[in-house]
Write a protein that binds this DNA or RNA. Sequence first.
DNA 1: CAGATTTTGTACCTGTAAGTCAAAAATTCA
DNA 2: TGAATTTTTGACTTACAGGTACAAAATCTG
Lengths: 192, 192
Amino acid sequence: MGRPKQFDPDIAIDQAMELFWRKGYAATTPQELTEALGVGKGSLYNAFGSKRALFELALRRYRDSQSPALAEILHGPGTVKDRLRQALHFLVDLDLADPDRRGCMVVNTATELAGSDETATELVRQVFNQTEDAFRGLIEEGMRSGEISSDRDPLAVGSLLLNTTIGLRVIGRVTEGPDRMVRVVDAIIDAL
Amino acid sequence: MGRPKQFDPDIAIDQAMELFWRKGYAATTPQELTEALGVGKGSLYNAFGSKRALFELALRRYRDSQSPALAEILHGPGTVKDRLRQALHFLVDLDLADPDRRGCMVVNTATELAGSDETATELVRQVFNQTEDAFRGLIEEGMRSGEISSDRDPLAVGSLLLNTTIGLRVIGRVTEGPDRMVRVVDAIIDAL
DNA sequence: CAGATTTTGTACCTGTAAGTCAAAAATTCA
DNA sequence: TGAATTTTTGACTTACAGGTACAAAATCTG
């Protein structure tokens, strides 16, 4: 009961996510948030409590909305190397297609808030763990099928692939064209 | 002529670098800067003009003070692969030895200021270019000596190594122990 | 309808960001 | 010594960050 909300908190979190993703945590102001969400300050603080709490909701939303795409490619059809290449190219295209070049919100959060926000840092770790695990699983599949040499440690290769995606998403923020990112993808696939 | 400065701007820039490195640009306040540099606000603004101008001096200082170490390893003694391994392990140790886990200031700047500070972004690009180039040079050396297979594109491998270092320095910010980073180094060296 | 509950809008608050300014202090030069 | 120049100190300023308070409004329940 009580007066019903005039806005959809779910949509508001999406909009907050877009803003935090583009500007980072510290550089995003409550005023910008109210403007982006189209909701007054009172409602915003009543609904979410604090800027930091809203940020964490936004970061979780980012993870939940963005993670599946990569996983789908990795579990999709094609050879293991094909799927790997597809997955990495997907990230390249994603980064370059974004006019704001926001990169990956998880990576951005890692470099902005590690050391000052343990909750956010833990969320970053969790996404990194999941991604590494997904890559490791795929590498193991490739080893079983004989497509990938079995004399490597699948976990280590998984770590390397996770590391590669992180690097790509940083480079995507500052690079002019696709050339360097494509070279990275070609080289890593070639090296497996 | 005129009254002599009571502080050494060179040292002040070093101290500003430490602070910006740890906290990033947006989260560092003039007050913290005056405390860290031990100089009044008037002097600070008289000497450096603005927070942003000081940041750019600090970022250049970072580049100038940190870049040589990696380059020295790459141009040092040992086989190419040895030097590569040394260089990457050097970064791992560097990141893990820092109690604040500040990572790399250039990478941090890439994710914080790309899109809002073109000067800083250009500096990031320049460091990335230099690093890629150094790796490419080393790979070419390894190809000439026969240590590295010549059927790869040295520039692409250079890009991959640059990308690897960037990823490592992000992971170094959030990781608990050395395990994952060591796996990355082992896997990339193994993959060459 | 009265009452309880929740949301909304707006005004308000405290603190601080980022910077400016004027006057005093410390130097060099004529 | 006096004039010129530059730095320092610290008070001052504008604007906004981040959040609170409260009354009015909108619902549900009995």
